[in-house]
Amino acid sequence: MRLTVISIAAAFAATTALANPVAPDDVVFGEYGEVEASLTGVPGDAANGAKIMYNRGLGNCIACHEVTALKDQPFHGEVGPTLDGTGDVRTEAELRGIVINAKMTFEGSVMPAFYRTSGFTRPGDGYTGKAAKMPIAPILSAQEIEDVVAYLMTLKD
């Protein structure tokens, strides 16, 4: 009986965390752009993070970064640094901050902010050439950010 109650409480806590992710404008960045707290309170799924890395409709990280572990996927870019070994040289908090908004860590970065919804100069609405209607949705959801971070942490030398 007690184990059942604990299991139900844990499931409820996980569901509540997913139902109430940190909103993009409420993300707290550290001095160097790191984000210590999970956006969802739920561990990321590295397998799903890998899919987001090469999915052209989501993160499409390999369009700019080379990832040897994803060599079966076409069109690895050379604009950004290779992500091989990233899990050895960056902390989870640093990676979370970079994926959320790389400009908080690297001021002149051309990497898009994957979890930002405000503060843009004039975002366009897809391919229409018109200004976007507010509010703008983030490129990735809070859980997708956590999934990408979980995958990046697996990239070790």
Rank of each mutant, 00 (worst) to 15 (best):
G80V: 01
R56L: 05
G119K: 13
I6M: 11
Y54V: 14
D147V: 08
D88E: 13
P74R: 04
V28D: 13
E66Y: 09
G87I: 02
V35S: 12
T15Y: 13
V22T: 15
P81E: 09
R96G: 11
I62H: 00
H65D: 02
V110G: 02
S109Y: 04
K133A: 15
M1V: 14
G44H: 07
N55E: 09
A131F: 10
F29G: 06
L39I: 07
L155F: 03
G126H: 08
Q143P: 06
A23G: 04
A46S: 15
Y115L: 10
E146A: 09
K156G: 01
A69D: 14
L18Y: 12
T128G: 07
P123S: 09
Q143H: 10
T40L: 05
M104D: 01
A9M: 13
H65Y: 02
V22Y: 10
L18H: 09
A37K: 14
T16P: 00
F75L: 11
N101D: 15
E144L: 03
L58N: 06
A132L: 02
M111Y: 03
G30A: 09
P81M: 00
Q73V: 03
M1D: 13
A11Q: 07
E31I: 09
L3Y: 12
G57H: 11
V42K: 11
I139D: 08
E66T: 14
G41W: 08
D88T: 05
G124S: 15
G87K: 03
Y54K: 07
V27P: 14
F106Q: 02
A17L: 03
E94H: 05
S38L: 06
D84H: 00
F114I: 00
Y151K: 11
A19E: 07
P43I: 05
P21E: 06
S118F: 09
D25P: 02
N55T: 09
G87Y: 03
G85N: 06
L58K: 15
M53P: 00
G30L: 12
E107Y: 04
A23L: 13
K71Q: 14
P135W: 05
D45L: 11
E94F: 06
P138D: 09
A150M: 12
V67F: 05
D84Y: 00
M104I: 00
N48L: 04
V35P: 11
G33S: 09
G44Q: 08
V148I: 09
A131G: 11
Y127L: 13
T16Y: 14
